[in-house]
Each structure stands twice: as structure tokens, then as C-alpha cells.
Design a protein around this nucleic acid. Sequence first.
DNA 1: ACGATTATATCGCATTATACGATATAACGA
DNA 2: TCGTTATATCGTATAATGCGATATAATCGT
Lengths: 132, 132
Amino acid sequence: MINVINRCFTDIYFQLHPVQNDAISHQSVRILQLVHKKKYIMIRDIAEYLLISHNTASEHVKKLVSSGWLYKERSEEDQRKVYLHLTQSGLSVLKKNTELDEEKLQNALNKLSDEEKMQIVRAFQLLSEVSK
Amino acid sequence: MINVINRCFTDIYFQLHPVQNDAISHQSVRILQLVHKKKYIMIRDIAEYLLISHNTASEHVKKLVSSGWLYKERSEEDQRKVYLHLTQSGLSVLKKNTELDEEKLQNALNKLSDEEKMQIVRAFQLLSEVSK
DNA sequence: ACGATTATATCGCATTATACGATATAACGA
DNA sequence: TCGTTATATCGTATAATGCGATATAATCGT
């Protein structure tokens, strides 16, 4: 069962992911992903998740800010802390690099009945829920 | 509906993907992926898919062969052609970099009933099928 | 037969990505 | 005040990425 899900999962991503011409590095995508999924994330958290030193994480973030994909917010309570957030542009880049292509996904879904579409949505919601 | 599926899809991958300490580059993963999903793939095909020049693709493949993740097979009919295949080691590296972690996925599924598990498997098979 | 094409490979070179140690600054905590 | 925490910057090193130029061998078209 695990293997079937994994084969389908990778097949779906392989077939439906957007064609990306964007020049974006692997670590940049991982950082945008972290910022998107985690609330109140800081530089040191990114270093921890990515298993890199804090200064390297700081350099990465600097680049992402200057690219216009992230912005910083100083904490009110503790002025040392810097919370990171995605810009609209950053969200758009992240989507192109982690989500399924909307048009390709729509084309795939159109081959199914309404009942089948709903089954797929429910299944994704279910697995997403128990993954947390 | 598209947005719900995409949010769930990225959540599932974010929560369940393996923690990877392997030192492997982005392009290397993409090439292993291509070789895995496509039959009789050649250097020039990889260049085409990855939108890079054939000589760069050749260099990448050389590195992957020397890492023991790919091996080459000369075509019988046309001796110019070199088909690429994954080694066992290459397949293992690819899985760690694209699939969901077996243990994490199992833990998530264990929170569900047998009926719900089957619904998820059917939904993934369904979407995988219409994605081709 | 032979020039054109195809597929791969290699070399030289340039740029970007990735990372860390050392060091600095500012803010917080006891 | 002194130690700790969070971020930032500089210098430096190595790996990753990529392309043009060039080479070799096989195949194709006429």
C-alpha cells in the first residue's frame, strides 16, 4: 500500500508539475517552503531545519530578501528576533516550484466524473489532515 | 478544488518527506527522476527535458555514473545511442529524494480506518492514471 | 562513396551556489 | 555588568551549473 501510494505520488508530480525556467536554487525553494508552512519562523529556525550554520542561513535569507521574495519583520517583544514572511512574488515563485500546474491538473481532473473528483479531494484532505 | 488539492499535496510532502542528509544536487535528482520514469532515455533527451546543452547533460551523467547511480547501455541497432538506467543504489537515492518517508506515511495511515486507507489508495491511483 | 547529420564525450572557462569560521553589533536576561 | 541570544558581514573555499569549441564515431541520404 505504501509503495503504491509512493509510486502514484511521484507519478502525479512528475506528470503535472509546471515546467520551470526560473533561475532559483534548491536551498532557496526549501527556505520559501519553510516560511510558507511555518508561522513566526526566524533565521535560526531555518538553519536548524536545513542543517546549516546560522550565518549561512542569514546569507540565504539576505539573497531572498533582495530578490523580493521574502521580507523581514522585527519582533515587538524581542528586538533581536526577525520573523520572515513571503511576499506575493515569493508565493508565486514557491507555487511554481512545489505545486502542481493548475492547467495540467485541471485537464487531468476533467477526465473524471464529479463523484470521482470529490473522492480525490476528500482523499487528499484526509491524508493531509493525518500527516500533521 | 485545484487550490485545495495543491495545498494538501504540498502539505503532505512537507510533512512526510524523508529528512535527507545526502549530498546530492538538484539537477542530479531531476536526472535520476527522468531515467526512472522514462524508458530508453538518452543523454540528448535529458538535455531537452532540463533545457540544458547536450554537453552539460553529458557531464552530469558522467558524474552520476561515477557515483554508481546510473549505468549506460549501448543500443544494439544504433551504436551512437546510449540508454541510461538506474542502479539499485541510484533507485534508493531517488526514493529518498522524491518519495514520502515510509515510516511517516505508515504512521499517518494508521490514524485511519481500513476503508479510509483504501479510499486514499484508490484516489491516488485514479489521479495518477488520468495524469498520463 | 562520401559529405551531412546525429550522439556522445572532453576541455577550458566563467558564474553561481553552498558553506563555514571569525568577527561584530545589538538586545535580552540573571 | 556579564553571559547569552539573534542576526549580520567578511573572507575564503569548494561544488554545482552551464556553455562554446572541439573531437570521435556511427549512421543517413544521395
